[in-house]
Amino acid sequence: MSAPVILDPCCGSRMMWFDKKHPAAVFGDLRSETLTVTDRSHGKPNGKRTLFITPDVRLDFRALPYVDDWFYLVAFDPPHLVRAGRRSWLAAKYGTLSRDWRADIRAGFAECFRVLRPNGTLVFKWNETQIKVREVLELSPYQPLFGNTAGKRNGTHWLVFMKPAGAAG
């Protein structure tokens, strides 16, 4: 098999993937763990849910271990919570940002664009329950090309970026 050409640097439990083992993708995350937390929203008698976070590579999205201009596609779905209970289902599912979340997201965008090939595509997913998407977009070096506008109702935005042809790694 050839080297992966798609990067998901914050894969978590790979919730958004239809093929959670897609051969063209490398799944990375800072966490590698199995978490069982209480979540009574799914009607299980014991109220417990288990989440498996099993990245191919343990990495920090703020300092990616890849060369410049490698990937054709980056799927960037960073943690979007700054407030969540330590053992909550949302914290387990999505992870949490540090107090300096702006620096984290700015570094994440910079790294994702660095490893993305010129004219490559970055798909960015953000839920604005706690932080508005407009605040996050101020941290990207590029503006999105397009995305969904239904986020105001459900809070989740999908935005598509293209790395400019002349941009350096």
Rank of each mutant, 00 (worst) to 15 (best):
V115R: 02
L59D: 03
F52V: 08
K125E: 12
W89P: 02
K44T: 13
S41C: 04
L97Q: 00
F61T: 03
R102K: 15
G28T: 03
K125F: 14
S88D: 06
F113G: 00
P45H: 13
Y72P: 01
A63H: 12
T54R: 10
K48P: 01
I105D: 00
L51P: 00
L64G: 00
P55T: 06
P45Y: 10
A84T: 10
T36G: 06
D60N: 13
L81P: 01
L122C: 10
E33G: 06
G108D: 02
R58D: 02
R31L: 11
R31S: 10
T50Q: 08
D29S: 07
W126N: 01
A110R: 04
K20V: 07
F124R: 00
W89C: 02
T36S: 08
R86E: 14
P79E: 02
A91R: 14
G43C: 10
H22R: 08
G43S: 14
D56Y: 00
F76S: 03
N119D: 15
T36H: 07
L59I: 08
P23C: 04
N127Q: 12
P65A: 12
A84E: 11
L90K: 05
V26K: 06
N119Y: 10
S41W: 04
H22V: 08
F52Q: 11
E111T: 00
T54E: 15
R117A: 13
H42Y: 15
D29G: 07
H42D: 04
A103S: 15
L73I: 13
F61L: 10
L97D: 01
F124S: 01
P79Q: 06
F71C: 10
Y94M: 04
I53D: 08
R114E: 02
R31K: 09
A25L: 10
N127G: 14
L81G: 00
V123Y: 06
V57N: 03
F71P: 03
R86Q: 11
P118D: 07
Y94V: 03
F113S: 01
A110E: 09
L59V: 08
W101G: 00
N46F: 07
D29R: 09
S98M: 07
R49W: 05
K48A: 10
V123S: 05
P65I: 11
G120Q: 04
F76W: 05
I53F: 08
R40Y: 15
D77Y: 00
T50L: 05
D68I: 11
D60M: 04
Y94K: 03
G43M: 12
T50C: 07
N127Y: 12
W70G: 01
L35G: 04
T121Q: 13
K20R: 15
A63Q: 12
R86C: 07
V82C: 14
F27D: 07
D60H: 05
W70A: 09
S32E: 14
D39I: 02
P65M: 14
G85S: 13
R87V: 03
A25I: 08
A107D: 11
F124C: 05
R83S: 15
L90T: 11
N127A: 14
L90M: 13
G108H: 02
D68N: 15
T54Y: 10
Y94Q: 07
W101P: 02
G108Y: 04
R58F: 06
L51K: 05
A84V: 12
